[in-house]
């Protein structure tokens, strides 16, 4: 057994987000003790108020960049992290708050806040990779805890993560679910969405909402045509691409096409 101080250090940082992704780490109830044994949890405010100084071997970053302050802070985080992995739709695509990218943020603050002049925010919500180099992006809203553990283990051991960028359809078919688009005529984003959730929604007779963002080679144009053939309106198609991963390039572009129509 190696001495405790030889364990690699793990830090978790939060930017603009709901905390759900870092909660996935605490959700690893069965594996939490093993994780705490494998790494030194050096900075994870959601779990412990004890904070050890950097540098850190592995930093997990949740959330998007929405303020000048955070744009500076992420560079500090990068500077003290040997490996930086972003987790969740906010960190990898800008999150639901990237809807501001398609609107006027001043108008939002004037409606939402009693004293909008106190609000200091950027006009956009951008992924971490738009600001600093990122070693790996783990998708999902929220991330899948099994994938999260795999990514942590992979980086601790210097192997590639087992995360695959193919469609949700593979997971859907592997679990024997019946395709909701074909058998029900329900519009589904599964064919263009990155796997990872295990095809939860289609298995419960719902179309995929695209929580994990675009898969590799997403043919959003063809899928949108398929949705139209099922009777979906241009507005409904635009809205489907404008959710948690609205800022991901493929979804942003397809959303633009249908919002204009």
């Amino acid at each position: 057994m190696k001495p405790a101080r030889a364990r690699p250090s793990l830090a978790v940082f939060k930017f603009a987000s709901c905390d759900g992704c870092q909660l996935s780490l605490l959700d690893c109830e069965d594996e939490l003790l093993a994780l705490a044994g494998a790494v030194e949890i050096a900075n994870f405010l959601e779990a412990s108020s004890r904070v050890l100084a950097g540098p850190y071997d592995l930093a997990l970053v949740e959330g998007s960049i929405t303020t000048e302050h955070d744009a500076r802070r992420i560079r500090e985080v990068r500077a003290q992290s040997r490996t930086l992995v972003t987790i969740g739709a906010c960190a990898t695509a800008g999150g639901i708050q990237a809807l501001r990218n398609f609107a006027d943020v001043k108008e939002f603050t004037s409606i939402v806040y009693a004293r909008p002049e106190y609000i200091s925010t950027l006009a956009t919500s951008t992924p971490i990779s738009a600001h600093v180099p990122v070693d790996f992006e783990l998708r999902g809203c929220p991330v899948d805890k099994g994938q999260l553990l795999d990514v942590i283990t992979a980086f601790l051991r210097g192997r590639a993560p087992g995360v695959r960028a193919h469609s949700v359809c593979l997971e859907c078919k592997r679990r024997g679910a019946v395709c909701v688009m074909v058998a029900r005529g329900t519009p589904c984003l599964g064919p263009v969405t990155h796997a990872g959730c295990g095809a939860i929604c289609p298995a419960y007779d719902r179309g995929c909402y695209g929580c994990f963002g675009p898969k590799e080679s997403p043919n959003t144009t063809s899928l949108a045509s398929g949705w139209k053939a099922l009777g979906a309106s241009e507005a409904a198609i635009a809205r489907a691409f404008r959710t948690y991963n609205a800022g991901a390039e493929a979804f942003r572009k397809e959303g633009d096409v249908h919002e204009r129509r």
Binding site: H166, C169, K173, G190, P191, V192, S217, N219, S222, L223
Partner: peptide, 13 residues
């Protein structure tokens, strides 16, 4: 290729 989603459904079915 313009229509194919590369979703894999055909091969899995």
């Amino acid at each position: 290729a313009g229509r194919c989603l590369a979703c894999s459904n055909c091969t899995l079915a």
